[in-house]
């Protein structure tokens, strides 16, 4: 698994990246009450909006950590947005994206680097 400074996580299986938000991000957001996932087939660019997650208080953008094409969205979150709080780095994933450049994945932070980054916040 790899991480971004915006608190997204990515796990890679072949050329398919599964993307979600980290446990830290879920804790900061508080109770998630609504998730807007991307449409299948949409092209996403690294650093641009992929999904929107909303707590009682506010809406927050989830950015695409990598560029590619959306293969699948976690539509179960529409009925059960609380999954993002309960299992942010597992069942609470947002989208699966077919990526063009696997080297971009390696360039993201690993767990140790992300944990060290959290220490600086």
């Amino acid at each position: 698994m790899r991480f971004t400074k915006d608190h997204e996580w990515v796990s890679l299986d072949g050329d398919v990246a599964t993307i979600g938000i980290t446990a830290y991000a879920a804790e900061q957001l508080g109770d998630v009450v609504f998730v807007e996932t991307p449409e299948v087939g949409k092209s996403v660019t690294a650093g641009e909006g992929l999904a929107v997650v909303e707590s009682v208080k506010a809406a927050s953008d989830v950015y695409a950590p990598l560029s590619g094409e959306v293969l699948e969205a976690n539509t179960a979150l529409a009925e059960a947005p609380e999954t993002v709080n309960q299992a942010p780095e597992a069942e609470g994933w947002f989208a699966k994206v077919k990526i063009a450049d696997a080297s971009a994945y390696e360039a993201l932070m690993d767990r140790a680097a992300y944990d060290a980054f959290l220490e600086t916040l």
Partner: peptide, 12 residues
Amino acid sequence: PVQYRDGVLKEH
């Protein structure tokens, strides 16, 4: 304080 440990939903 915007929220305590319980969070907005539970506090509400």
